[in-house]
Design a protein around this nucleic acid. Structure first.
Lengths: 192, 192
DNA sequence: CCTACCGATCGGTAGG
DNA sequence: CCTACCGATCGGTAGG
């Protein structure tokens, strides 16, 4: 089989994706040019467009790839374990500034209805909130949730907390322990 | 007295500031061009640069003005009342999409160390967190805080919650009641 | 405050 | 995957 440009296996293609992930994170979608990405990937900017037809398609592929890689947006555990899984993701992501920059920068930029990733982030939020809500409901049914905590509010709180902590961490990593704050929040909601 | 261009009283200047606030909010700093702002303000883009020497100076003036207008970033009350003041600000801001867009979009964009508003947001965060921390400490000393809640974590949580809720609200205003979620969060921390 | 203009940079295309 | 190029747009300046 000859190497097809559309094939997922191209090493250059993977390299472009990794570079674009870092640069969209550092500068946002608007702030990172195809030439910036190309130079850091060691090719020319039409070279990038040989692998991805438009800048927008490159962004969407970067986002699609991220979700696939760590299953960030898919609820895969049950009740308390699902929430603890998110704490673990936060702890792990604190080692990879690029990933946090990508989602913090783009989720704010993409609140504009005409942003190329607007639909992606709208759907992602709905999915993530629904997954967390389910976890809280399961926790409540198992009698593990303190009185007066509604799963719907708690889910939105949890997601808001994760997003807001990312901004604080980017501004001041040394003094922001994302996983710790999330854990304390969870401990205050759960019955011992 | 002849009208001086530097005078704060120019109606055109005020009009440019209001327009720029809306457009930086909708599109971010990078996404809103001086020509966009000028057209919507009814002048030409060199006209904008007559009132503000650079695009960056316009942004900083927009931010400075916002803080001055509602004292958003300055702790002015004591203990519980200070936290309730922030709930009120959230309730009020839900009527002004432009303001929320401005801060949500820019605070993420400005996590880049080379962003023109980076220093502004770094200092603002420190100031806001310090104010909230003080309020929690006062609440704790008055015996109004539940056991196991540390003022420092609680302050970072509170600010993260406000930021994260703004993103959710921008993506889905109908289903995100910022003030309500903040109130529930506060009620769960305070002793009755 | 406008007209006219500048050099730089953008995403994308032609053609190989 | 590159060279060479396109039209559009950017922030900012000159000169009035």
């Amino acid at each position: 089989m000859a190497k097809a440009p559309g094939a997922k296996g191209s090493a250059t293609r993977e390299h472009i994706l990794a570079t674009a992930t870092a640069m969209f994170g550092e500068s946002g979608y608007r702030g990172a040019s195809l030439r910036d990405i190309a130079v850091r990937a060691g090719i020319t900017h039409p070279g990038v467009l040989y692998h991805f037809p438009t800048k927008e398609s490159l962004l969407l592929e970067v986002l699609r790839r991220r979700d696939a890689l760590d299953g960030d947006a898919v609820a895969s555990a049950v009740g308390l374990a699902e929430l603890e899984r998110h704490v673990e993701i936060a702890r792990r992501n604190a080692e990879r500034r690029g990933i946090i920059e990508l989602f913090a920068t783009l989720s704010a930029e993409a609140t504009s209805p005409d942003h190329p990733a607007h639909a992606y982030f709208s759907e992602r939020y709905e999915r993530v909130v629904a997954g967390i809500r389910r976890a809280y409901q399961q926790l409540a049914e198992a009698g593990g949730l303190r009185d007066g905590i509604e799963p719907d509010d708690a889910a939105r709180q949890w997601v808001a907390l994760m997003d807001g902590l990312q901004i604080q961490w980017l501004l001041d990593p040394a003094r922001t322990d994302m996983a710790r704050v999330l854990e304390h929040h969870l401990n205050a909601q759960v019955t011992r």
